[in-house]
């Protein structure tokens, strides 16, 4: 019964992640061409480009949250590796040992990149652009990590 519920949750989590991943990819493919991010000249960012960057940031965050809060937990339940009350960092490390997650440290790096890019730097646009450019460079890492987990997950649903 518990396994059945976990399997359903896993299916839903995969669907949710796929959607976020799709919109993240669209935003990424546009954002890599933004001149302002290469030159650091923030005044050259158009309103449309800012909207795309908002989309990228939003979908990046939602994908990582869905992976960390729903996909990974249901997968651990299905593999009988879920431990109630275990700190999230320990879960990440165990997921790495089990081969589910490519790298726990890599995961934390993506998390900090997103925190830094979500931060508003009203007095420091140079820092803001740098944080966004940094995040964009790492979008393929998040995608790779998702591909890895989702391939394992799809065998279980």
């Amino acid at each position: 019964m518990t396994q059945e519920v976990a399997r359903l949750k896993l299916t839903q989590a995969l669907k949710e992640c796929d959607q976020h991943g799709f919109h993240l990819r669209l935003a990424y493919e546009e954002a890599v061409h933004f001149k302002a991010l290469r030159t650091g000249a923030h005044e050259n960012l158009s309103n449309e480009e800012i909207r795309t960057l908002d989309q990228l940031l939003f979908r990046f965050g939602r994908l990582q949250d869905a992976m960390g809060l729903r996909l990974l937990p249901s997968l651990l339940v299905l593999l009988a590796e879920w431990r109630e009350g275990e700190p999230f960092l320990d879960k990440l490390n165990r997921a790495e040992q089990l081969g589910i997650l490519p790298s726990a440290e890599g995961w934390q790096v993506l998390r900090e990149l997103r925190n830094q890019a979500s931060h508003d730097y009203p007095d420091n646009p140079e820092m803001m652009l740098s944080a966004l450019a940094n995040l964009i460079r790492h979008v393929p890492d998040l995608e790779k990590s998702y591909l890895h987990i989702s391939q394992i997950a799809r065998f279980r649903v």
């Binding site: 700190p87 999230f88 960092l89 440290e105 934390q108 790096v109 900090e112 990149l113 925190n115 830094q116 140079e126 820092m127 740098s130 944080a131 450019a133 940094n134």
Partner: peptide, 21 residues
């Protein structure tokens, strides 16, 4: 700026790994 940001991220990741979240 880019190096400082990269350093900040490395610092936060390593510090949290050792101190907990």
């Amino acid at each position: 700026v880019a190096e400082m940001l990269a350093g900040k991220i490395r610092f936060l990741v390593r510090a949290k790994q050792r101190l907990g979240e």
